[in-house]
Computed example of a mutant assay.
Amino acid sequence: MLSSLPAGVLANVVTSIPSPPVSYFDLGPLRIHVYALCIIAGIVIATLMTNHRLTKRGGEPWVVIDIALLAVPLAIIGARIFHVATHPGFYFGEGSNPWNITQPGSVWAIWEGGIAIFGALLGGAVGAWLGCRWTGIRFWSFADALAPGLLLAQAIGRFGNWFNQELYGWPTDLPWGLEIDADNAAFPAGLPEGTLFHPTFLYEVVWNILGVVFLLWIGRRLRLQWGRLFALYLIWYGAGRVVWESIRIDPSEIYLGLRTNVWAAIAGIVLGIVILIVQRRHFGSEPSPYVPGRQRAHGEALQSDDPTDFVDVSEPPASEVIHPAAATSTAAAK
């Protein structure tokens, strides 16, 4: 399909988006990859946003750090595993040495790019669940607090793909076409130097930022809790990813005519719908962001316009229940 495009694809181009000339810089003996900086910046901003939102719900300040200590490493591991598993030809082809950490293209060379958000969601979900069990935070309370920040982190992370000159779309003659170096290993064979491509990284950045605004607005307007806001995150991100993924030209495994990540995005949409349906069984506001019996021990003021958000309506511990007969005998003794 690409080789059939006319050579004059740039004839009517008014302007274009240049790719950064470098993807890393050296700081003494250390090589700092901009890709990694984008990922780290996204993690930091998502953590700050989640802490703010969860604290407003009644969570202890910075309890999110305890959850992140498990969620972030498992998210990165899951992201890499998912990418390697869905691109086996990159790492296990003839002549490759996938387990040699010193060789480019090894399964360990995460600094070269190659992490998948869907793997990050799976690994991060496991880590977040374990972290919530550790801290006593309700998993769905944490997920709802995380959703807008997670989408913003993904938008920031996409700039790493821009610096790496990767994950772009079909050739285009639109004014915002993306410039890719002709000597880039991923530059499609058969296309003339100077061909512009759809900047799918930018499409996803714009879509994700719009999603952040939408989630913040709809979450406040409808007071979405019990995992419903996170469900909308899955649907919003999945819907956009189906479109951007469908026009990307980087190699991918194809199943039933669709790229692997298109199927993953569809699965995310379905999961979001299932969460919305299943969580309809909950009415009203969550009584607390904590699991019953794990509420904060200290009594600082809770920040909320609606104090009922934080009232613990769970049953008291058995040790605090006074049997009616015992109450009667106590009154008689008086």
Rank of each mutant, 00 (worst) to 15 (best):
T308F: 04
P18C: 10
A297C: 08
Q295P: 05
G268A: 08
S106F: 11
E300Y: 15
R53W: 08
G28V: 10
P29L: 08
W162C: 04
Q165L: 04
L174V: 09
W99G: 15
F82M: 15
T102R: 14
G93N: 12
W140T: 06
L69R: 08
V13G: 15
A7G: 10
W140R: 04
L48S: 12
I254A: 09
T135I: 05
W108S: 12
G160E: 01
L224E: 01
A147G: 03
A36I: 05
A325N: 09
I180F: 03
A189L: 15
G114C: 02
G240L: 09
V84W: 04
A239P: 05
P188Q: 12
G190Y: 05
I277W: 02
H282I: 00
L30P: 07
F187W: 08
L178P: 02
P18K: 11
P98L: 14
S329Y: 15
A71W: 07
T308I: 06
R241S: 06
L191G: 11
F142H: 02
N184G: 09
L196N: 11
L48N: 12
F142V: 01
S3F: 13
L234F: 07
E179I: 08
A267D: 04
G169Q: 05
H83D: 12
V313E: 10
E193K: 14
A231C: 00
G114A: 02
L229D: 01
T50R: 10
F142D: 01
E286K: 00
R53C: 08
V262W: 06
L276D: 00
T308Y: 04
A11L: 13
I275W: 00
I275C: 00
I277R: 01
I17W: 10
V22F: 14
I39H: 07
G190K: 07
A41P: 04
A267R: 03
V311W: 09
L229R: 01
S285C: 01
I115A: 02
R138T: 00
A186H: 13
A185D: 13
G219R: 01
F201E: 07
T135E: 05
L37A: 03
Y233T: 03
L216R: 07
W170H: 14
V126Q: 03
D144G: 00
A120K: 02
W207D: 06
G95S: 11
L302Y: 10
W134N: 10
L196W: 12
A85M: 14
D306N: 04
Y24D: 13
N100L: 15
P175T: 11
C132E: 02
L271M: 05
G160P: 02
Y203L: 11
V72A: 05
R158I: 04
A331P: 09
Y91G: 13
F118T: 03
G119E: 04
L174S: 08
F163R: 01
G124Y: 04
T47I: 11
L302K: 11
